[in-house]
Design a protein around this nucleic acid. Structure first.
Lengths: 104, 104
DNA sequence: TGACAATATGTCAGTTATGACATAATCTCA
DNA sequence: TGAGATTATGTCATAACTGACATATTGTCA
């Protein structure tokens, strides 16, 4: 919400940011998960394009095959950090990462 | 590197992915850090636009003032996950997040 | 200036993410 | 089919992240 709008609402006696915020929690969580899923899918696609096995990709990322499998499965134990760093390691440009998130 | 290019190089006897990979480590790391810095700056900008103190923002994020300060300072102990979830909590649309990363 | 608000920095115990390992399930060709 | 390769799943010790607290530093304004 922009400052001008906030001021307009507050001047009319609205308590900005209580119920609406509560409801937004689910949409935030959803957006976060959608982003992770989109990154997962993209990672798998790029790995396959490069004809890498999970084992080979793991070596490239200094990780393990099982963790790569979990990344691609969208396992909740996998962080956004790891997904992003892994995509970068596969040579994904920042520009492409941005597009993935934008349209996830 | 795309498959066709890889095959072209491999057919000429190149060992794809050794020296070049090593050199890329720094660029990957740089890209990763740039993204975190860009998210930090954006978070601070959005918090200020909303006229929130770090304390208030912390309550919104169910975090603490000191962690918010570290987020904005680009402290290495702050994860991409936290930055992204925090920006979402401030109402940043995924589309905007994508743009931030794309152009970081 | 001085007092109070806001922000920054250091530390730490609890939580979460990670690589590694074992092993199960699935795929792929001969 | 079946053997070898690839991927999936479960577990665990260790490493990294987190909120919280204390306290220092900086900003603001009368």
């Amino acid at each position: 919400m922009e400052i001008t709008k906030r001021k307009r609402l507050e001047s009319k006696g609205w308590k900005v940011g209580t119920v609406q915020e509560f409801l937004d929690l689910s949409t935030e969580e959803a957006a976060y998960i959608e982003m992770k899923v989109a990154l997962s899918k993209t990672f798998q696609r790029r790995r396959r394009e490069k004809r890498l096995t999970q084992q080979q990709a793991a070596r490239l990322l200094k990780s393990s095959q099982s963790r790569v499998a979990k990344m691609e499965a969208g396992d909740p134990s996998v962080s956004l950090d790891l997904l992003v760093r892994s995509l970068l390691a596969l040579g994904t440009p920042k520009r492409a990462l941005g597009r993935i998130l934008s349209s996830s």
